[in-house]
């Protein structure tokens, strides 16, 4: 009897040790995240001022700001979303709702799984060879937006597929029973019901795109941009202009990379401030996505 109790005690001890180990591992991960945020905040927060958001980069660290960077990021993200979202949702819908079981579908599926694992810098090389030197799009907002759009395309497709797959079969059958077509079932039922999941995936993908620097460096973003692309909305007719698409640009991560790579301490402070803004943007987007996922998961009961 005694030895059984000893065994139980020993097992409980081992379990206890493992729980401590597990919590420790979790703690290391979370503590690093906290250290990173606190470090950025300590160095960068004092630099965050109205002036920092409304100034162009400068040779003088104290005068420099992120105006061209955050405006550039917003414009590039517009192009990215316009490219990846419709294409991704359409492709995801096709694969879940229409695709027959044949070798073409197999190729597309294998291809998407592999694309999701291609390093981002390789997309940059592709864009350099194709968009810049073949299509002559130049180092413009359009090139950057398209590159990042293709980069997040697999993520949007995968998110769409998962969301669409979660819609029960009988919803579609109800539509057919009423004489509706396949497209009507998708447009009026499947897509609206899976919008929550798709939106979550799109937001996470966009937050990834906002922080991407490697492909943007490869396609040659300039780091010293002391002007803004032309505004998309004009005061004079025709009111809408697409000139901004062909304008040179810089984006937040590139601006930050540029400041980090300089030896002077003062620029590192700017880098911290830019990093803080970038981090808040991505964490906010991730937070929204997690909240959305949580809400949709709770609400839906079939």
């Amino acid at each position: 009897m005694r030895s059984v109790q000893q065994i139980i005690a020993r097992n409980k001890l081992a379990d206890g040790i493992f729980v401590v180990l597990g919590l420790l591992a979790l703690f290391i991960g979370i503590a690093t995240l906290l250290a990173l945020i606190v470090d950025l905040a300590l160095h960068g927060a004092p630099r965050l001022s109205w002036q920092f958001f409304t100034s162009f980069p400068s040779r003088f660290a104290a005068k420099a700001g992120i105006l061209s960077a955050w405006v550039g990021t917003c414009m590039v993200m517009l192009v990215t979303a316009a490219c990846a979202v419709p294409l991704g949702i359409a492709a995801g819908t096709y694969l879940e709702e229409y695709a027959p079981k044949n070798w073409v579908t197999d190729i597309i599926e294998i291809n998407i799984a592999n694309l999701a694992g291609v390093p981002s810098i390789v997309y940059g090389l592709m864009a350099l060879g194709l968009f810049i030197y073949q299509f002559n799009l130049g180092q413009t907002v359009l090139t950057a937006g398209l590159t990042l759009g293709l980069l997040i395309l697999p993520m949007v497709i995968i998110a769409t597929r998962e969301a669409v797959r979660a819609i029960p079969r009988n919803i579609r059958e109800a539509v057919y029973a009423l004489g509706g077509t396949q497209w009507q079932s998708i447009r009026d039922h499947v897509l609206p019901y899976s919008m929550g999941g798709i939106l979550t995936g799109v937001i996470i993908a966009m937050s990834r795109a906002i922080g991407e620097s490697a492909p943007i460096i490869t396609i040659g973003a300039l780091t010293f941009i002391a002007f803004l692309p032309p505004a998309p909305l004009q005061a004079t007719p025709p009111f809408v202009s697409f000139e901004w698409l062909t304008s040179p640009y810089t984006v937040m991560p590139i601006q930050m990379f540029n400041w980090v790579s300089r030896p002077q301490e003062a620029f590192h402070v700017n880098a911290a401030a830019a990093g803080l803004v970038l981090l808040l943007m991505t964490l906010l987007m991730n937070g929204i996505a997690i909240y959305l996922r949580y809400r949709f998961r709770k609400r839906i009961k079939w």
Binding site: L26, G29, I30, T32, L33, A35, L36, D39, L40, H43, I204, S207, R208, I210, G211, E212, S213, A214, P253, M256, F257, V260, H268, A271, A272, G275, L278, L279, T282, L283, N286, I290
Partner: peptide, 21 residues
């Protein structure tokens, strides 16, 4: 979700953290 945020932080920010922290 907190762990997932680890992979959501932009890599350039991690670079800053590695170099200066």
């Amino acid at each position: 979700p907190v762990l997932e945020m680890l992979s959501g932080v932009p890599t350039v920010v991690y670079g800053y953290f590695a170099l200066l922290f």
